[in-house]
Simulated assay, not measured.
Amino acid sequence: MQGIVIKSTGSWYSVRLENEKQVDARIQGKFRIKGIKTTNPVAVGDIVTLKETEENYVITDIQDRKNYVIRKSVNLSKRSHIIAANIDQALLIVTLSHPTTYTGFIDRFLITAEAYHIPTIIVFNKIDIYTEAEKEKLTKLMAIYTKIGYKCVAISALKEANIEELKTIMKDKTSVVSGHSGVGKSTLLNCIEPKLKLKTSEISESHSQGKHTTTFAEMYELNFGGFIIDTPGVKAFGLIDFDKNELSHYFLEMRALLNECHFNNCQHINEPKCAIKAAVSTGEIEEFRYNNYISMYTDDEEENYRDKGY
């Protein structure tokens, strides 16, 4: 029998069977010794084959994934953690205050999603609490990312502003929701699907950060069609198994100019006659995007927490 993994708790997996029955299952031992370089051999969204034993259900096989999104694992003995698999689109929840999501984090997420062929919609939440300066910043960022090619939506999950627009985007698709802790993912999901009644928490006043209310990734069915995957709050996205020579290919505005560089192997840092650096100097490519490219190229993870320009 086959099913889709809707929740992973590390040792047990909740699987939704083709007849919509939900069962708990373990993985067959061999998955643990396949040399997989991730902390979790099975992820939410995986299509799996199961067999029923006298004691429980056992996952015996995993279908090839069409895509997945990963983050660096907190377990240093492994290289990465698969957040979710077989995704139609990612919703990156961003807030300009309480807490602040910096473009360093946004761009790392976008580049990771681009590398794994996952379209991303940038969802700016909490617009009901923004100051005039933050509203101005919101307008500029939305214009910049829209010009690059990303769909942007400004919402307030708390006040239910522009939620219908977001529902239209999510209808009949499998969407993964990600972002820092405290950006309002659980509040948003409760707004979109009130029956979920997900736990939410207050923002820490001392650090302007959210507390983790989602411990494991979990998939939910939407009453208007489609599925949503809620993920734990992510502090940072590390670039895993990236070839630095291909990093610029995942910046959409750079990709269009790569053939115009004088050198075929141009890395757009110190080389002369570089089309990318020329585009930055004329404003065709935003300076903060180029700075984020440099920080990724040099693996400066601190750029997740501070910005140059935005």
Rank of each mutant, 00 (worst) to 15 (best):
A236T: 10
F237H: 06
G238Y: 07
G238D: 15
G238F: 13
G238T: 07
G238A: 05
L239Q: 04
I240T: 15
I240D: 12
I240E: 15
D241P: 06
D241A: 12
D241M: 04
F242C: 14
F242L: 08
D243C: 05
D243Y: 05
K244W: 00
K244S: 12
K244V: 01
N245A: 14
N245K: 14
S248D: 11
S248Y: 01
H249L: 12
Y250R: 07
Y250W: 14
Y250A: 15
F251A: 11
F251T: 14
L252K: 12
E253G: 12
E253A: 13
M254H: 00
M254L: 06
R255L: 02
R255G: 06
A256W: 00
A256M: 13
A256P: 00
L257N: 14
N259Q: 10
N259C: 02
E260H: 12
E260S: 11
C261I: 09
C261Y: 09
C261M: 07
C261K: 02
C261P: 09
H262I: 06
H262Q: 07
F263M: 07
N265Y: 05
N265W: 11
C266V: 09
Q267D: 04
Q267A: 11
H268P: 08
H268I: 09
H268S: 09
N270Y: 12
N270M: 04
E271P: 13
P272N: 01
C274V: 02
C274I: 01
A275P: 00
K277F: 00
K277S: 01
A278G: 10
A279E: 03
A279R: 08
A279K: 05
V280W: 11
V280G: 14
V280E: 11
S281C: 01
S281N: 10
